[in-house]
């Protein structure tokens, strides 16, 4: 149902305001992402949340609406990674989630500055993501893998060995919400190489308003992603 609505919205946005003089730009970009999971870990002792880098690959379709405005969409891959790191005497233990989303923004873009071969554009809108796959890696203390050392006073000291893992994350239908949506805003610096061809540097801020989890229990802590990306891309005018 959600998927159907998404396609309807996309087709509506793409074909409204169509006029013969409109200019279309198509491009692709590669970049790095940095994600923060809004999640309460204060009750987990000696645990901190850490923002983790990822990558993004994005296609861009821009459809000029007026002089300075255009509709910006496309489809791509966007990583929203995070990890929970133990601190203090559990330093070195961690659990890292590498989450890869299919990413589709629908934004309005405005050209706010243009001089010589440079142009600055700002954009805002919404995004719809689908949590396509994930990988978890980490190290946890293993109480069934210990090394026992005799202390000076005859006391036995147990050292827990770390258990390392790296595996594909299996989605839990009861818990994981794979469709994610939110607001996306960004800024773009374009450099026109030759006529109809330009390079651009883009910065985007993504704020999820949907939870990464389904509501499956009372008083459930929410998990929301806030991500930024910095990307370098190439566009062609048609």
């Amino acid at each position: 149902m959600v998927q159907k609505k998404f396609y309807l919205l996309l087709s509506g946005l793409c074909f409204c305001n169509l006029n013969l003089f409109a200019q279309i730009r198509i491009g692709v970009s590669l970049g790095g992402t940095h994600n923060h999971l809004v999640y309460d870990v204060t009750d987990s002792k000696l645990t901190q949340q850490k923002k983790i880098m990822g990558y993004s690959i994005q296609s861009h379709i821009k459809y000029e609406l007026f002089d300075v405005f255009s509709l910006h969409t496309g489809i791509g891959i966007f990583q929203k990674n995070y990890s929970f790191n133990r601190i203090g005497k559990y330093s070195g233990y961690y659990e890292q989630y590498n989450n890869t989303y299919l990413h589709m923004p629908v934004k309005i873009e405005a050209k706010v500055y243009e001089k010589y071969k440079f142009a600055v554009l700002i954009n805002t809108g919404i995004f719809i993501d689908y949590w396509a796959w994930a990988n978890i890696e980490g190290a946890i203390p293993n109480i069934f893998d210990t090394q026992d050392v005799l202390g000076n006073n005859g006391q036995v000291i147990q050292h827990l060995s770390p258990a390392y893992y790296s595996e594909k994350y299996t989605f839990n239908n009861q818990k994981d919400k794979r469709w994610e949506y939110g607001f996306e805003s960004g800024i773009e610096l374009d450099y026109l190489v030759i006529k109809k061809y330009c390079f651009f540097l883009g910065f985007d801020y993504l704020y999820s308003i949907s939870d990464q989890q389904k509501k499956y229990s009372i008083n459930q802590s929410s998990k929301k992603n806030i991500a930024i990306s910095l990307s370098l891309g190439y566009q062609m005018y048609f």
């Binding site: 999640y39 929970f84 893998d145 893992y165 818990k175 229990s217 802590s221």
Partner: peptide
């Protein structure tokens, strides 16, 4: 984590 169904992976004993 804090979730009712949030589990670590299985590790060997």
């Amino acid at each position: 984590g804090n979730g009712r169904f949030d589990y670590t992976p299985w590790i060997k004993a």
